[in-house]
Each structure stands twice: as C-alpha cells, then as structure tokens.
Design a protein around this nucleic acid. Structure first.
Length: 261
DNA sequence: ATGGTAGGGTACCTA
C-alpha cells in the first residue's frame, strides 16, 4: 500500500497537476494540505472519476486538508482535539480497514508560525504542536499502525535545509519548534523518510521566490511520522521531486511511503 | 542585495 502526503497549495489551481499525479503515482491514500477551499467547492467529481473516495475538512481562502483513498474509510474525524475555539481547518483523520486490522491516517497542516516574533502566530504554532503531541500520545496507546502525515512546517535538523543559516530566526527552525518535533519522535514515532534514507540533503519544499528551485535551495518540512506498528510495515519511501518541475507547480512535492499492508 | 512569487479573492492576507 502506498500512502502519500502533499501540500498542493490550492486545489482549484492544482486540479490538473493533482489528477495527473494521481494517475502517475497511483497512491492508495493521499493526504492533502492547503486545499484553500470550502468543502462544497472541492472538485471532488474529477477525483472520484479516478476511483478515489474524497473526505475534506476545508475553510474559505486558507488552510484546509483532505484524504483521498481508494478504499472508503470506516471512520473520519475532523479537527485536532484540545481547543474548541480553534476554527482553522488543519487536521483530518481516517481509519481504514486493511488485511489483518486497520491503519489510521491523519492529514495535518501544522501552523507556519511566522513571523516568529508575532504575539499570536508563533504561540499558536507551539500550542498546536502541544495539542498534536497530546493527540499522538492518546492514539499511541491504541497500539495500531498510525501515520501522522503532512506539512509540519518543521525543519527537523540542519541538514534538512540547503542553507541552515537562512532559517535561524524562522519559526520552522527555532530551537523550540525543533524541540516540540523531537518530543513527538520521543513518543516513539519514526520519521519515515529519514529512517529509510542515508543521503542528505533531502528536500520537500522549494520557495517560489528568488529562484529557490533552480538553485536547489530547499527544505524538508513534509513528513510521514509512523507509530511503531506502522514502522514495522514500512518498506521504502520516496520524494517525488519531479512534480516541482511541472507547469504551475505547488511549492511542495509529494512524499510517499510504501507499506506491507 | 532585505527583494523575490503564488493563491485566494477582490483589499490585503498568508506563505
């Protein structure tokens, strides 16, 4: 089974690329972020025509996440628990029946947090990460294959950036951000791409600005975090960076994991 | 060099 995460930066602007990628890459489950659409505006017909079930958690203009899957989820939950006043659509969870049990897959869009000296944005990022850690701890107790997939807006290590010195005051790379990400790992989650690749650097995002793609000035911020039960079944991973060279690309590329499910 | 580009939605906000 192939499970992927991709920040598509606007589903309406990316529908042609998205459909082409679904045909080429043929994921069983695709976790999307930044759909930038309300649920009613999501172009589900084109995606359903390719054989996918569609579950969305959208909002107007910004954010928004989705789960596309060849098998229909048994259960879907929208929103990250822990703050009923949070109206930003950044989290959706699906439970899928597979041979021998279930796999639980979450598509998450972690807050960017910049500018990092903003009195609202960076604290919101850290609070969201604390809620994610609490959620992950709860789910870990189920002892199920669990995949927390998404745009984490976290550069885990210096070698996950072409030029780490550019990022020292950035919310994606501040010590507190990286420490919160490590706390998630220390619950027992495995960074699937890092666990299956010795090579560095590996990037999943190249800014639209200043020729970042042409200069390979990238960062690795899109991650597949696996519970031990999911990690046991991991075969390989890939970063499909050729998609960044397509016409009208997203600034992120798909990150995929192959599993023995 | 302190910019640059893109999406959403129609004035700026977010990234």
């Amino acid at each position: 089974m192939k499970i992927a995460t991709w920040n598509i930066n606007g589903v309406k602007a990316r529908i042609e690329n998205l459909c082409q990628w679904l045909k080429d890459s043929d994921p069983d489950i695709a976790c999307l972020q930044e759909i930038k659409s309300v649920d009613e505006g999501f172009p589900r017909g084109e995606i359903e025509a390719l054989g996918y079930h569609v579950e969305t958690h959208g909002q107007k203009g910004f954010n928004g996440v989705a789960l596309l899957s060849k098998i229909k989820p048994d259960e879907v939950n929208r929103g990250l628990p822990g703050d009923e006043t949070d109206e930003q659509a950044r989290f959706i969870e699906g439970v899928f029946s597979v041979e021998g049990g279930v796999v639980r897959v979450c598509s998450l869009y972690l807050p960017n947090g910049n500018p990092s000296d903003d009195p609202i944005k960076y604290p919101y990022k850290l609070a969201w990460m604390a809620r994610l850690e609490a959620f992950a701890r709860d789910r870990m107790a189920l002892e199920e294959p669990l995949i927390l997939a998404g745009d984490y807006n976290v550069i885990p290590e210096p070698h996950d950036a072409k030029d780490p010195s550019q990022w020292v005051t950035d919310a994606l790379f501040l010590p507190q951000t990286r420490a919160a990400f490590r706390r998630l790992e220390n619950l027992g989650f495995v960074d699937a791409v890092r666990a299956t690749n010795d090579e560095t650097p590996l990037f999943s995002f190249w800014d639209y600005q200043a020729g970042a793609w042409q200069k390979n000035n990238g960062i690795r911020i899109d991650h597949l975090m696996l519970s031990p039960e999911a990690s046991d079944r991991l075969r390989s991973t890939a970063i499909e960076k050729h998609v960044r060279a397509w016409e009208k690309p997203s600034d992120h590329v798909p990150v995929v994991g192959h599993f023995h499910f």
